[in-house]
């Protein structure tokens, strides 16, 4: 790219966008002092909420993995009537306001809905429970997993599966030995994105389960009750713990996804 006006306009625009993204985060991460963080870490409410956030986000990601993978494969490989509608339905949680998600979940899981009555008879309580938190998290996180996994599966040539089957492998064996390892990076990316999305969810969770308190709800409560200064250490801890978990996940799975080097 020559260094003309377009180049400089691009640079200025890039700096502006990066500043907008980095400044608030940098400010938040540097605002709490060491004592504030120590104090927050010794607060059982804070540690419980962070652990609950991590637990619910992990369960959410695993539910997305197990239930979303077959759907993602189907959408990547098969053409069928109504496929566009199915794709649109998968994306619905991305476009609707999150408090609406919470209200919708409460609507179908309450006493006034047949589905809610079945759950209650089975002893499953959604409102004000971990189950409720995970339910709304799965709702908002599923599109991120399904879309990433679908793209991963679509990037694996069906010819590889054909060759594998012609060599004697069953469809399941082909999926396990060829498709899954090659789509592994996308599936992992989907898993991380769905966990991250679950971890950051507030609007839908606060409607369904104010208690038990996940970290974003606790941050909101501290902000409302005591102001910005008291919510920042919780945010700091949540961000640091999340980053550590994701880095560890990347590190652990780095050697387990398929390596496919290209000739220079």
């Amino acid at each position: 790219m020559s260094r003309g006006p377009f180049f400089w306009l691009s640079i200025v625009s890039a700096v502006a966008v990066m500043s907008f993204l980095v400044l608030p985060m940098a400010s938040m991460m540097t605002a709490p002092g060491l004592n504030d963080i120590k104090q927050a870490l010794s607060d059982k409410l804070v540690t419980d909420s962070v652990l609950l956030s991590l637990y619910t986000a992990t369960v959410t990601a695993l539910i997305c993995l197990v239930s979303g993978t077959p759907l993602a494969y189907l959408l990547a490989r098969k053409e069928f009537p109504g496929k566009r509608i199915v794709l649109s339905i998968v994306d619905i949680p991305i476009v609707i306001p999150h408090p609406v998600v919470g209200i919708a979940i409460l609507g179908v899981t309450g006493r006034n809905h047949w589905f809610g009555r079945i759950l209650l008879e089975a002893g499953i309580r959604v409102m004000g429970s971990k189950t409720g938190i995970i339910a709304v998290m799965v709702f908002v996180a599923m599109p991120f997993f399904v879309n990433a996994a679908r793209e991963g599966f679509a990037s694996v040539s069906p010819r590889l599966e054909n060759v594998s089957m012609s060599l004697g492998a069953s469809r399941f064996s082909t999926f396990r030995r060829i498709t899954l390892p090659l789509a592994g990076r996308s599936i992992l990316a989907g898993l991380i994105m769905s966990a991250a999305r679950a971890l950051s969810e507030f609007g839908a969770v606060v409607v369904v389960a104010y208690h038990p308190m996940i970290a974003p709800v606790l941050m909101y409560e501290r902000y409302e009750a005591y102001g910005l200064k008291y919510s920042q250490p919780v945010a700091f801890i949540l961000v640091v713990v999340s980053l550590l978990v994701f880095i560890a996940l990347r590190f652990v799975t780095a050697g387990k996804t398929a390596k496919t080097e290209e000739r220079p």
């Binding site: 040539s157 590889l160 060759v163 390892p181 496919t260």
Partner: peptide, 20 residues
């Protein structure tokens, strides 16, 4: 008869080697 039991080998234009 399933593909793997037909005694047929296939080679595609793009080789379709398993890249991993």
């Amino acid at each position: 008869i399933k593909p793997g039991r037909r005694g047929v080998g296939i080679v595609y234009q793009d080789s379709a080697l398993f890249p991993h």
